[in-house]
Simulated assay, not measured.
Amino acid sequence: MAAATTTTEQTSESRSAPVPFDFSQPPVIEGFNPLPKVKDETFKDKFIRKTKENPFVPIGCLGTAGALMYGLRSFHQGKTRQSQLSMRARIFAQGFTVVAIIFGVVVTAVKRKE
């Protein structure tokens, strides 16, 4: 009978122990203030916003895709010279896109510091 009371006491003690983390509430981190959620953006809204922030990235992507398609078409038709020039244009467009992305990241970082 004594053993039965000790297991009951142990389970009641484990229930009353403090919970290290409450999963129903977000964690409280000192010095961190989460921004309120503005709204849920659709893909179209986010695409338009990002394009307005840095319009050179979509331009570079379209240039890359256009040069690739034209180069593949030239290759298929057997125009090797035109295909080679198109692949070089594609590499140039890819470089332009990467530079535009880096430029956008730098501008965003500088804008946040101000």
Rank of each mutant, 00 (worst) to 15 (best):
Arg15Tyr: 14
Ser14His: 07
Thr108Arg: 15
Leu62Phe: 08
Gly104His: 12
Glu30Phe: 09
Phe96Gly: 06
Leu62Lys: 07
Thr5Leu: 10
Arg49Glu: 11
Asn54Glu: 11
Arg88Leu: 13
Ala109Trp: 04
Glu41Gln: 08
Gly60Leu: 11
Val105His: 04
Gly66Met: 08
Gln94Asp: 10
Ala65Thr: 13
Ala17Phe: 09
Gly95Phe: 07
Lys50Pro: 00
Phe103Trp: 02
Ala109His: 12
Pro26Val: 02
Leu85Val: 05
Pro27Val: 09
His76Trp: 07
Lys39Val: 06
Ala3Arg: 07
Phe32Glu: 04
Phe21Tyr: 12
Asp45Ser: 15
Ser12Leu: 05
Met1Gln: 07
Glu41His: 11
Thr8His: 04
Pro55Ile: 00
Leu68Thr: 11
Ala89Trp: 02
Lys44Gln: 14
Phe75Thr: 15
Lys79Met: 12
Arg15Leu: 15
Val107Glu: 14
Val19Phe: 03
Arg15Cys: 13
Ala4Glu: 09
Lys39Gln: 13
Met87Ser: 09
Gln82Cys: 00
Met1Asp: 08
Ser86Phe: 08
Val38Arg: 14
Gly31Lys: 06
Val105Asp: 03
Val106Phe: 08
Gly71Leu: 02
Thr7His: 06
Phe92Lys: 05
Ile48Ala: 13
Gln77Pro: 06
Ala109Pro: 04
Glu41Pro: 04
Gln82Leu: 12
Val98Asn: 04
Ala4Tyr: 05
Val19Pro: 01
Ser14Phe: 05
Glu114Gln: 05
Thr51Leu: 07
Gly63Ile: 02
Arg90Leu: 15
Ile102Met: 08
Phe47Val: 11
Ala4Leu: 12
Pro36Arg: 00
Val28Gln: 09
Ser24Leu: 04
Asp45Gln: 15
Gly31Glu: 01
Val57His: 06
Asp40Lys: 15
Phe56His: 10
Phe56Ala: 05
Ala2Gly: 13
Ala67Trp: 01
Pro36Ala: 07
Phe32Cys: 09
Lys46Phe: 06
Val99Trp: 00
Ile102Ser: 00
Thr80Leu: 04
Lys111Asp: 13
Glu53Thr: 01
Thr8Asp: 06
Ile91Asp: 15
Pro58Phe: 07
Arg73Val: 13
Phe43Ile: 15
Ile59Thr: 12
Leu35Pro: 15
Asp45Phe: 02
Arg81Glu: 15
Gln25Cys: 00
Ser14Lys: 11
Gln94Val: 14
Phe92Asp: 08
Met69Pro: 00
Phe103Asp: 07
Ala109Phe: 05
Ile101Met: 08
Ala67Gly: 07
Ser16His: 12
Arg88Pro: 04
Ile29Thr: 15
Thr5Glu: 10
Met1Ala: 11
Val99Asp: 01
Pro27Trp: 08
Val98Trp: 01
Asp45Leu: 09
Pro55Asn: 04
Ser74Glu: 15
Ser16Thr: 14
Ala109Glu: 10
Leu85Cys: 05
Glu53Val: 04
Gln94Gly: 13
Val38Asp: 06
Leu35Glu: 09
Gln94Arg: 07
Phe47Ser: 14
Ala17Val: 04
Val99Ala: 05
Met69Ala: 12
Met87Arg: 06
Val57Lys: 01
Pro36Ser: 03
Pro58Lys: 09
Glu53Ser: 01
Val98Asp: 10
